[in-house]
Design a binder for these strands. Structure first.
Lengths: 195, 195
DNA sequence: CTATACATGTAACTAGTTACATGATTTA
DNA sequence: TAAATCATGTAACTAGTTACATGTATAG
């Protein structure tokens, strides 16, 4: 399980409440590991039981009380152990790729619309990442340690989004061409490709 | 849920048994949707109950009997419905990215080894995909329909693997540089960057 | 005689999603 | 006064993994 380890990394970077962690998993951390607040609260409870984190009640003015979590030596040990353990290759699951593979069994125009939607999503993501890159890491060659690692993960996100975007363009070019050539055939009574 | 739809696409391409489906999910189909035989048998049972597929017992000589599954009109309808329904953007989960983000909390050399392992895996995958591309799709411009869709999904795989490979190279360059500069500092008693 | 391929399953567990539940404070 | 932000949870469900279970036929 990696959610525990993702939380350990996040708490090592900075201690925080379940709510704060949930917000991090909506933003920067969520760019490579998604987690809902329900999952986070449940997992934090388990991590306290295992002694990987400690919890402290913190009263606030003008806001509800919160519980601040901090990694313990046990948690740091577990994180180091996990980092040294080889990760086995990810099991890919792309619903979008299933749709492309099955495109013949649906309406071509609707599939093309879906690709355009997918493309727009990745273009937007890429834009967000590029903005963060320029704003937060103007001099990448000077980076070291944690800041460097944050930058490198962002670089991975940029590469992934750019890759998806380029693929969408390839898909749109190929599938619109395929659709249009099928249209011409339907029009053209002189031409019988099946005969 | 997309496993059901992945199975429907696969059975539309060609009817087959649970075992045969499991093999497909180990090979071509598994390049973008992973599924174990346990999951497949369980899901096929559910799909029969929903009327999306029918099952026929087939006796074989020299081999155990098998159950061949075929998509029904109901299954085809469900597939078309699902293809027309917008897919919401994938929730990314990259254990590898978590490890990069948390690299400061482990041994730098071990993290570099992990990246090298990851790189080797993607290089191998890319090689497999490139081989299939050359062997099965020598003239991509002539492709239409199902064959075109198969090719395009393969293209997505090639792009994704190439992207991961390039990222690994960027990671290795940056992290070996960071490690080596830290080593020099430790050696160099004249230089105190923290003072 | 041993390993691999063919063939189909069940049971228990772990991880993740969706729906429900509560309540304070601040901003529009 | 309505919506958004802060803050923490439970319950039920769906999906996926790991372990267990059985048996035949063929190739080395």
């Amino acid at each position: 399980m990696a959610l525990e380890h993702a939380i350990l990394v996040s708490l090592e970077e900075r201690a925080g409440s379940g709510y704060e962690l949930a917000r991090r998993f909506d933003r920067s951390f969520g760019f490579f590991w998604a987690a809902s607040h329900q999952q986070i609260y449940r997992t934090l409870k388990r991590m306290v039981a295992r002694g990987w984190v400690t919890v402290t009640d913190v009263a606030q003015q003008g806001r509800p009380d919160k519980k601040v979590y901090r990694a313990t030596d046990g948690g740091r040990g577990e994180l180091a152990r996990w980092l040294a353990e080889p990760t086995d290759p990810v099991t890919v699951r792309s619903e979008f790729a299933v749709k492309i593979r099955g495109a013949s069994f649906g309406d071509p125009d609707v599939v093309i619309e879906e690709i355009a939607r997918h493309r727009a999503h990745h273009a937007e993501r890429l834009d967000v990442y590029r903005t963060i890159e320029k704003r937060d890491f103007p001099d990448p060659d000077d980076l070291r340690g944690q800041r460097l690692h944050q930058y490198l993960v962002l670089r991975g996100g940029i590469r992934a989004e750019q890759g998806q975007l380029d693929w969408c363009d390839e898909l749109l070019a190929a599938l619109t061409r395929d659709r249009d050539s099928a249209d011409h055939e339907a029009d053209d009574t002189h031409h019988h490709p099946e005969g």
